[in-house]
Simulated scan of single mutants.
Amino acid sequence: MLDRVLSIFTILSLYTFGNTDNKIALLTFDDGPIISTKNIIEVVREEDIPVTMFFVGCQIEVFQNIYKDAISYPNILIANHTYSHANNKYRKFYSNPTLVVEDIKKANEIVGLDNVSNTSSLYLPVRLAGRNVFRLPTITKNDNMIDEVQREKEIVGYDDIYKEGYYIYGWDIEWASEKDGKPILTPQEIYNDMEKIYQKKLSSKENKVVLLMHDFMFSNNFDGKENLRTLIQLLKNGGWSFENIENY
C-alpha cells in the first residue's frame, strides 16, 4: 500500500514540475558604454534584475565614469564585446584569426579592470561584434547570415577564441532598431516575440531566451527608459525570471 502511495506521489510530482513554466530572460546590451548606457543602468537598478552589458574596450576608454557606475552595481555583469568592434569592417576583421584573438585579449584586460567581483573567471564572457556565434561546452553555432565561403574563413577565429579559454555568446532574438537607434518594435511586440520563441522552443537553450539590444536604443530621444521599463514589467507580469549570461 505504501509503495502504491509513493508511486502516485511520484507521478503527481513529475506532472506538476513538468508543467510548471520556467521562462528565463537574459537581457543583454551591446556597444556600450555610451551616454544612453546611463538610462539602462538607472532602470536596471529600479527594477532590480540581473542583466549583461557587453562593453567595447575602446568605448570604456572614452566613457570611464559610466563604466565605473555600471560595475558598481552587482546585478550588472560587464562582459567583453571586443576592443575595436572590428572597426565596423567585419569581413576583413574576421578573416584574420590572429587579429581577432588579440583584439579579444586586449578588451579582456580593459573590460576586466576593476571588474573582478563581477565574474568568477579570468576570461570574461564574449560577444563578437556583428556576429551571432556561440562557442560553449554544450553549444556550437555559427552565423548563418554570412555566406558559406566567408563563414569558413571566420570559423578559425571563433574556434581560436574558445581554445584561449573564452566562452562566446550569441542571441536568440534581437530588438532591432533603425540606423539612428529608434526601436523598430514596441516593447509589447518584442515581448510577444519572446513568448513565441519560448512556446515554440526555438531558443538555443530550452527555457532560456537571450535578447540582444543596443545601448543607443535607450536614449532620451526614443523614450529609452520608458521602453526598457515597460519591457521588463511585461516580462515580470508574464512570469519570466531573469539571469545574466554567466548563468546560461
Rank of each mutant, 00 (worst) to 15 (best):
V5I: 15
S7T: 11
I11A: 14
T16M: 09
T16P: 15
F17L: 10
F17K: 08
G18A: 11
N19Q: 07
T20G: 15
K23Q: 09
A25Y: 01
L26G: 00
L26N: 03
L27P: 02
D30L: 00
G32Y: 00
I34H: 02
I34Q: 02
S36K: 04
K38N: 12
N39P: 11
I40Y: 03
I40C: 01
I40M: 04
E42T: 07
V43E: 00
I49D: 00
I49R: 02
I49W: 00
M53R: 01
F55M: 07
F55P: 08
V56E: 04
V56M: 03
Q59A: 11
Q64Y: 15
Q64L: 14
D69L: 13
D69R: 11
S72C: 11
S72H: 04
P74D: 00
P74W: 04
I78T: 06
A79I: 02
H85Q: 07
N87C: 07
N88G: 13
Y90Q: 12
Y90C: 06
K92I: 15
F93T: 05
T98C: 11
V100F: 06
E102M: 13
K106L: 11
A107W: 04
A107D: 01
A107H: 05
E109T: 11
E109N: 14
I110P: 07
I110S: 02
G112L: 06
L113Y: 11
L113R: 15
L113M: 14
D114W: 09
V116C: 15
N118P: 14
T119F: 01
T119G: 02
S120H: 12
L122G: 08
L124K: 06
R127D: 04
R127I: 01
G130N: 02
R135G: 08
L136K: 05
P137W: 03
M145T: 14
M145F: 10
E152N: 07
E154T: 09
I155N: 03
I155Y: 04
G157C: 13
I161D: 01
Y162H: 09
Y162P: 09
K163T: 10
K163F: 12
E164D: 11
G165Y: 08
Y166K: 05
Y167N: 03
I168C: 08
G170R: 07
I173S: 13
E174H: 12
E178G: 13
D180V: 05
K182H: 06
I184L: 08
P187Q: 06
E189A: 13
M194E: 05
M194I: 08
M194A: 04
E195Q: 10
K196R: 14
K196L: 15
K200P: 08
K201L: 05
S204G: 12
K205G: 12
K205Q: 12
K205I: 09
D215S: 09
F216W: 01
F216H: 00
M217W: 01
F218C: 06
N220Y: 01
N220I: 00
K225H: 07
L228H: 00
T230S: 09
N237Q: 08
G238Q: 10
G238T: 12
W240N: 04
W240S: 03
E243F: 15
E246P: 01
Y248V: 07
